[in-house]
Design a protein around this nucleic acid. Structure first.
Length: 296
DNA sequence: GCGACAG
DNA sequence: ATCTTGTCGC
């Protein structure tokens, strides 16, 4: 007799719960600019060699002055979680804040964490977001002066089966504008890696992109081939609205930060959290631990 | 039914 | 996500 429900049932119930939570949180989602900084940032004004978005400008309808008000964009956050290779539990969360126009890291936070949830496509947020929220709690408590004006997230925003990916989910929870930047194409809402898509990618020049339309003709995001400082990226990245920001502004921000294919905030979060992982593995590897040897 | 599928 | 140094080429 079954005194417990089988794993299939447990997972189905979990997915149902997650779906409800996504619907719930999505009510708070905003896809508009809600901030004071403007597209004419200190970055563009002071760095001659780094031009504002170039041809073809994906922001045809965007008047920079409409983003206006008092401040300039200075602090940008990046989050990422790195993993231990043969280990589906231990990982390291990272939150970094970089400053414009230097792109220097001015704040960093790493934490070894224990994942309790599997990765299920469409539900990435439920695996990673609790740890990211905790990182922002620490930032708010310890160094509120570095709270970023916008956060770049490794993963999609509204470019998601339910229109509410990790970037949107995190944005709503921390109430800070977020941008989703995925390194891989997510075929959903009618998006296909079909012939037409392949052809568009093929013809992309660096610094260019094209919009990704849903079946209902909504713009879900932008495929973008970064204009990096060195070699040409092999494949595009996928930019989408996270929360409290327009796609036009999101694209503009990402372009500012693409020194490499992956924009600097998330790139630094990735690189540095991997370094933490390496050290953690070393400290947990018995083979070179003297104390283990002497005690045995 | 089968495969694909952000990180 | 993770594996991985040097190397072929513009």
């Amino acid at each position: 007799m079954a005194l417990y429900r089988d794993n299939k049932t447990v997972q189905d119930e979990m997915l149902y719960k997650w779906k409800c939570e996504q619907d719930e949180l999505k009510q708070n989602l905003s896809t508009k600019d809600t901030f004071a900084w403007q597209m004419t940032s200190n970055f563009c004004n002071e760095e001659k060699e780094r031009e504002p978005p170039s041809t073809p400008n994906p922001c045809q309808t965007c008047d920079p002055s409409s983003h206006a008000q008092k401040t300039v964009l200075q602090y940008i956050g990046g989050v990422d979680i790195s993993f231990v290779k043969g280990d589906d539990v231990n990982a390291c969360s990272a939150l970094v804040v970089i400053a414009l126009p230097s792109l220097e890291v001015v704040y960093e936070d790493y934490e070894m964490i224990q994942l309790d949830t599997p990765y299920i496509p469409g539900y990435l947020a439920f695996r990673e977001v609790p740890f990211l929220v905790e990182a922002f709690d620490r930032l708010k408590a310890k160094a509120p002066q570095f709270i970023p004006q916008v956060v770049l997230v490794d993963g999609n925003g509204i470019l998601h089966p339910k229109g509410f990916g990790l970037a949107s989910h995190l944005g709503v929870l921390i109430d800070i504008p977020t941008i989703g930047v995925a390194k891989n194409f997510y075929a959903t809402d009618g998006l296909l890696k079909d012939e037409a898509y392949q052809e568009k990618v093929k013809q992309l020049e660096t610094g260019q992109g094209f919009p990704l339309f849903s079946t209902e003709n909504d713009v879900l995001g932008q495929a973008y081939l970064p204009k990096t400082d060195f070699s040409k990226p092999s494949k595009p990245i996928y930019i989408s609205i996270g929360h409290n920001i327009s796609l036009e502004t999101a694209i503009w921000v990402v372009q500012l930060l693409c020194q490499y294919r992956v924009p600097e905030p998330t790139r630094q979060a990735d690189i540095r959290s991997r370094e933490v992982i390496r050290k953690w593995i070393k400290s947990h590897n018995p083979s070179q631990d003297i104390s283990m040897i002497t005690e045995n």
